[in-house]
């Protein structure tokens, strides 16, 4: 009898084991939903599969009576736009500032403390300020994501830059590289994998900030919709939306993972993500 730490599932065993909790969760839900609906057919808390199907059909495939748009897609488009815009701006800022702080001693002295301080500010606490300064429109939502994610990205990148072996920077100089060339040919390519990794870790917080700001002030968006229909206890809408948001988050993460696997083939095995 092998020790527990040495017993491993086979290939198909792995898939089966992985699927098991999902199946159990779904079964538990269906049983509970059936039980509640048997007592009260108008129960809204645990809707049946049919009401999910009806809600999804209404939101995704029928134009909305008032706006004439397909709500699910319009919400998805609005939210993804904010998310991607916010993350792109955060990435651009973090690359510039992270490399500058990690590589240039003068920049580190000037900006490392302020970035460290900013990263401690709870982003949701500044949301009211953002609403006051930038208004209730798109801008404040994007700025919240940028504000929430950038300090972490900057710090992570600057640590990665500072951790590059000193020998490499010296060697680059003896090969005639200028500071700019060291950035573009030595430092940047080597910290890109770390950037992708940090970005993947930031996806969770970014979604959190997005949903929060949409819940408070918006006219469309995934977060706006679930908080809107909460008033009517519309679980048949909320649950599919939550599943859809989860799927989107998973897909973004998966895309970044694939990107990093295919783009950074030079990484030694233990460092690849």
């Amino acid at each position: 009898m092998a020790r527990a730490i040495n017993r491993r599932p086979g290939r198909s065993g792995q898939i089966l084991l992985g699927a098991l909790p999902f199946v159990l969760l779904a079964a538990a839900y269906l049983l509970a939903s059936d039980a509640r609906l048997a007592v009260n057919p108008n129960d809204k808390l645990l809707p049946s599969l049919e009401s999910f199907a009806a809600a999804i059909d209404r939101l995704a495939f029928q134009p909305d009576a008032r706006k004439g748009t397909y709500l699910l897609w319009a919400d998805t488009w609005a939210s993804l736009q904010r998310l991607v815009l916010g993350l792109s701006i955060a990435t651009a800022l973090a690359l510039t500032a992270g490399i500058a702080i990690g590589l240039l001693p003068m920049m580190r002295a000037a900006f490392a403390p302020v970035v460290a301080a900013l990263s401690m500010v709870p982003p949701l606490a500044v949301l009211p300020i953002l609403f006051i300064v930038f208004g209730l429109g798109e801008l404040s939502k994007v700025v919240l994501i940028v504000f929430g994610v950038t300090p972490f990205l900057i710090r992570d990148l600057s640590f990665a830059v500072a951790a590059l072996p000193r020998e490499q920077l010296v060697k680059a100089q003896t090969l005639g590289a200028s500071s700019w060339q060291i950035v573009t040919r030595v430092v940047l390519p080597q910290v890109l994998p770390r950037l992708v990794g940090a970005l993947r870790l930031s996806l969770g917080p970014a979604w959190l900030f997005l949903i929060s700001s949409e819940a408070i002030a918006a006219t469309e968006g995934l977060g706006y919709r679930i908080f809107l229909v909460r008033r009517y206890l519309a679980m048949d809408v909320i649950l599919p939306y939550v599943a859809w948001i989860t799927l989107l988050a998973f897909l973004l993460d998966y895309l970044l993972q694939r990107l990093s696997r295919s783009a950074f083939r030079w990484l030694p095995g233990e460092q690849s993500l």
Binding site: P165, E167, Q168, V170, K171, Q173, T174, L175, G176, V186, P189, Q190, F264, W266, L267, P268
Partner: peptide, 17 residues
Amino acid sequence: PCADRGVVFQRYSVFPH
């Protein structure tokens, strides 16, 4: 450091990427 003096260290002397 500049290009008139080259160097080889014991480790980390080539660029891994």
